[in-house]
């Protein structure tokens, strides 16, 4: 009688996905900062593409450019612009926080710096919204 050798089953391999960056369950303030930095970064990239599209209408003549500018004056676009200001402010301030940390400045205060960036972004966004809306 030949006995079968036990073979340990292969372990289940973890999937390596960028989506894993956005798992927020159980994460602390610095994990939220990481996710917000990426989300606001994506917002800025989309804005840049939209900006290029709007400017590209210059090449199609004054009529086309005036038409797209009129469309951009819609209150909905203004609302999006307020969101854009929030994204620019947070991404910029948090970027500053990351640069300081990279120089080993304020690493122990990094969570306080994140909250600071968040509060300052929110305050200036409210002011901008009051002026624009």
């Amino acid at each position: 009688m030949v006995s079968e050798t036990y073979r340990r089953p292969e372990p289940r391999q973890p999937s390596r996905r960028v989506w894993a960056w956005f798992r927020l369950r159980g994460r602390g303030a610095s994990g939220w900062a990481f996710v917000l930095h990426r989300l606001t970064g994506v917002v800025l990239v989309f804005y840049l593409l939209l900006h290029f599209y709007v400017l590209s209408n210059l090449a199609r003549g004054p009529q086309a450019y005036n038409a797209i500018i009129s469309a951009m004056k819609s209150p909905w676009v203004t609302l999006l612009e307020v969101g854009l200001i929030a994204a620019v402010l947070f991404h910029g301030l948090n970027g500053l926080r990351l640069m300081l940390m990279g120089l080993q400045i304020g690493v122990e205060q990094q969570e306080a710096m994140f909250w600071g960036a968040l509060v300052v972004s929110a305050l200036f966004t409210v002011v901008a919204a009051a002026l624009m809306l």
Binding site: R27, G28, S30, G31, A33, F34, L98, M101, G102, L103, Q104, V107, E108, Q110, E111
Partner: peptide, 27 residues
């Protein structure tokens, strides 16, 4: 610099802070 490594470390190794230290040394 998500710093979650330091946040969960049970022994205060502070890996995130140590990585920032390495960066500064290299710079």
């Amino acid at each position: 610099a998500a710093m979650e490594c330091s946040s969960v470390c049970p022994n205060g190794v502070d890996p995130g802070g140590m990585i920032m230290f390495l960066r500064k040394m290299l710079l």
